[in-house]
Amino acid sequence: MKLLALAAVLLAAPAALAQSIQVDAKLPVYKPIQGVSGNVKSVGSDTLNNLMTLWAEGFKKHYPAVAVEVEGKGSGTAPPALINGSSTFGPMSRPMKQKEIDDFEKAFGYKPTAVPAAVDTLAVYVHKDNPLAQLSLDQVDAIFSKSRKAGYAKDLTTWGDLGLTGEWADKPISLYGRNSASGTYGFFKEHALANGDFKDAVKEQPGSSAVVQGVASDKFAIGYSGIGYKTADVKMLKLAKDAKSEAFEISQENAYSGKYPMTRILYVYVNKKPDAQLDPLRREFLRYVLSKQGQEDTVKDGFYPLTPRLVDQGLKAIGLEAAAVEAGAKQ
């Protein structure tokens, strides 16, 4: 009953909870420089697909002579494209695996450079009418995984197993997830499933948005996808690290502080020789991504912007002066 009441409150007042996300004022404002033109091609994560497109559109406003192509079929497609030279940027929704880094190093003799680009939280979605409010990670594991490495005592197959009553009690949980080329799949497997195996019943979807739409159209569904894809038809659950901890909702603050357990950084990988400067085109594009305007695009796409510290880390990675924290210190 308590759960239901809570759910009613949540349903009744989503607007009250909704906050427009703010970009840190300390982030550097992007100012165009001269002489940038050429072609940019991005191949990689589909979570970052829309965001790369927004950045490309924003970047092109400053540099009309630049042509940007965006292709997004999953994070797994980024490293091969970077290695064979068919892409300039490899957006990925997870850090590269050791194997992928090794392959890159074999080809070029140095490691690829990771530039943090946005903060994402992986949300666990249920249908908007679902009275459930929160889950702990071991419960999530018991719902999605057949190996239950997080140690929950029993397999969770019906909503009744999670304490729901009434029509929900005996309804099986319908599972939605991503396909295995996706970085979201890998991240969820690592952080929620403790690298266990997914159940065979998970309906694998070709895109982040497709997961949300699947959950929206299936009343007894649960699924995971990026925060950026939420719609009015689904509800995000609060998540707790384990059975004893407090559960936190997804918010900018909880994401930055790490209280919400499934927070990740989205990266743009680039091929940069350690001792050389990037060419102006790639350098400026990444500088745009790390700028105030670039991070506003992040908000537009439903993700969280980088913190000044992450922006500085990114700027340093591509051989530029840190700007955000110092600028803030000056103010």
Binding site: D46, N49, N50, G72, Q205, P206, G207, S208, S209, A210, V212, Q213, G228, Y229, T231, A232, D233, D301, G302
Partner: peptide
């Protein structure tokens, strides 16, 4: 069509 249907951030409007 595929992109709008499966990849769009604002899927309701898409």
């Amino acid at each position: 069509v595929f992109d709008l249907g499966f990849q769009s951030q604002n899927s309701e409007a898409a």
